[in-house]
Simulated scan of single mutants.
Amino acid sequence: MKVYAVLVLTIASVSAGFLPQDVAVHPRDSIAAPSIEGRITNGNKAATNQFPYQVGLSFTSSSGSWWCGGSIISNTWVLTAAHCTKGASSVTIYYGSTVRTSAKLKKKVSSSKFVQHSGYKASTLSNDISLIKTPSVKFTIAINKISLPAIASSYSSFAGQTAVASGWGKTSDSDSSATSNLQYAELQVISNAVCQQTFGSVITSGVICVASTNKKSTCQGDSGGPLALNGKLIGVTSFVSAKGCERNTPAGFTRVTSYLDWIKSKSGVFY
């Protein structure tokens, strides 16, 4: 399947006039990373309650389990990536965790409560977004929602601004051991035109990219987690370079402003 995905992306890029320098893959599928647990590469340790909207998501299926991140957008909805929910039979949601294994609250939810975007395509990484309907949770200093961007901001590329990604993804490409502390990294948003120079036509209007410098990036285990700017959720962690997370190549996120209508129609949540 990975070979097929690479082939499709290559053909699409050439036909669209792009000659990509790299191939994009979901962090969950990255062969450069042997484990689905760890932390953001070369990031900073989060303080207690610094990211109350961040949740950990432990997915299970008949073929195995994996770890992703997600964002609380209301007391009954979590937003994450479609490549995280795909194939899962259930998820355990970890609320209020800074130390990953010490959640303030855990809720187990079956796949019947997943709302995966019907247009998600693993071959092109498009529409990589899902909602999870959750039991109602009480907001506290450790557990709280993050606001969605205003409709008016849909016209902004956010290029040049510094956003914050957080998660428990791998600390390096070679690391295979889990870390306990939530990590974060400040990353500069770049234009889609610049990102296309690396990944070609996989970069569409539904994607937002950040630059990776000094080996700071999202990585395996960060999938589905938040990219926040000025207290608003602007991205959902979607893909990195197939060559690894420390290559100083852009990292890609699902652009939340492109899916505000979809989120509202499926969950009723809007701002």
Rank of each mutant, 00 (worst) to 15 (best):
K106D: 02
K106Y: 06
K107T: 01
K107Y: 02
K107L: 00
K107N: 04
K107I: 08
K108N: 11
K108P: 06
K108E: 10
K108W: 02
V109Y: 05
V109I: 00
V109A: 01
V109W: 05
V109F: 02
S110W: 00
S111R: 10
S112M: 04
S112A: 12
S112K: 12
K113Q: 04
K113M: 02
F114S: 03
F114R: 05
V115S: 08
V115N: 06
V115G: 07
V115T: 01
V115K: 07
Q116H: 02
Q116C: 04
Q116E: 14
H117Q: 11
H117W: 11
S118Y: 14
S118V: 15
S118K: 13
S118H: 15
G119K: 15
Y120S: 04
Y120F: 14
K121N: 15
K121S: 14
K121H: 11
K121W: 07
K121E: 06
A122D: 08
S123C: 10
T124V: 01
L125T: 02
L125S: 08
L125Y: 00
L125F: 03
S126T: 13
S126D: 14
S126M: 05
N127H: 14
D128S: 01
D128H: 05
I129R: 06
S130E: 06
S130V: 07
S130K: 02
L131Y: 08
L131E: 11
L131R: 06
I132V: 10
I132D: 02
K133Q: 15
K133F: 12
K133N: 14
K133W: 04
T134W: 07
T134D: 09
P135N: 07
P135Y: 07
P135S: 13
P135C: 04
S136T: 11
S136G: 08
V137D: 00
V137A: 03
V137Q: 01
V137S: 03
K138F: 04
K138L: 11
F139M: 14
T140E: 05
I141D: 14
A142K: 10
A142N: 01
I143V: 14
I143Y: 06
N144P: 00
I146M: 10
I146V: 14
P149L: 13
P149M: 15
P149C: 10
A150Y: 14
A150C: 09
A150R: 04
A150P: 11
A150K: 14
I151Y: 15
I151C: 14
I151M: 15
